[in-house]
Write a protein that binds this DNA or RNA. Structure first.
Lengths: 168, 168
DNA sequence: ATGTAAGTTGACGTTAACGTCAACGTTATA
DNA sequence: TATAACGTTGACGTTAACGTCAACTTACAT
């Protein structure tokens, strides 16, 4: 329970080292600071990144990979930092966050389907490359998907009532 | 096996109707055509979208939601359409596709973690909003995540040897 | 003292994915 | 016949997320 604040042997990075940790450029890191996503401490002018910045940045990039904008991410970080005291605003953001969570499960479905599609495609390519004679390989896909459309389309549009929007 | 080409009672949409089906603008649809992602048939000048375009567009947007660029997506569609005959190029793309599939499983992890984070945050907001006295709620997060960093960081960097790049 | 490697702040350029007009053609309905 | 309603093709504007300089400081090894 004692807040000793032992930052002695904690790892520290300059902007260059920190950037390469996440496989990005120093420019990107500075850009994120300008946007207010991270606020590294300074030692005579230079930025110094520690463990706190590391975990924070991990989550930033995680969200970014999933297609969220930096403004979206800041909306979350602000709440985490406790800089959003107004209850009305907190409630507003909480609703958005809840929507995001819902959409994330839909993303999972997207990943499933895309993974299936891509592995299937890879398999088709393999068989085609292994094949000796080049037959009408290209049209296979269109034919397949035209066939199963009716059922698919029916499904989509009976459940069309409860639609909801995208990301943030 | 008989290619009857029964397009009689198939659903058809104009660009406006088609766009609203996917909750986007006609401009976006036209843009995708300019990029070569879809090629709807024409009836005296106007674009006409059918089932084929529908399923195609579904997949396009699915990939887009996961952060892929339109050029990335076109690389896939070209192969599906069979317009990439050169074996060398086919092999090249197949490798990329395989990488994409691998990265998609990492995306799943991203979703998991972000979902956990967001639901946790929502819960914290709820308890804070329900609470009567406003105590030092804001700092909770930073403290929590500083604590678990060491172990976390060690994990990250022992498995740092087998890194691989991002999307396409 | 002189590189050299690391950092800094502007300022401007760039790319993707559209938005936003403008100017125009076609069809159906009052 | 006129006036919507729906379509078309440019052409230009916009935003996010940086890249790419330039001009400069600071720390340290030779």
């Amino acid at each position: 329970m004692n807040k000793v604040n032992v930052t002695s042997n904690d790892p520290k990075w300059g902007v260059q080292a920190f950037a390469t940790l996440f496989d990005i450029t120093p420019r990107a890191v500075r850009f994120y600071e300008d946007k207010g996503l991270i606020t590294p401490c300074r030692e005579n002018g230079s930025r110094v990144f520690g463990p706190v910045e590391y975990v924070r940045f991990e989550r930033i990039l995680r969200a970014k990979r999933l297609g969220f904008t930096l403004d979206d991410i800041k909306e979350v970080l602000d709440v985490m930092d406790g800089t959003v005291r107004a209850h009305v605003e907190l409630r507003r953001r909480r609703e958005n966050f809840a929507r995001v969570v819902k959409n994330l499960s839909r993303r999972r479905e997207d990943i499933k389907k895309l993974t299936a599609d891509m592995t299937d495609l890879c398999a088709r390519i393999d068989t085609h490359l292994a094949d000796v004679n080049p037959d009408d390989h290209g049209l296979a896909f269109a034919a397949d998907y035209e066939a199963v459309f009716r059922e698919h389309f029916a499904d989509e549009h009976t459940s069309d009532i409860n639609r909801n929007d995208d990301n943030a």
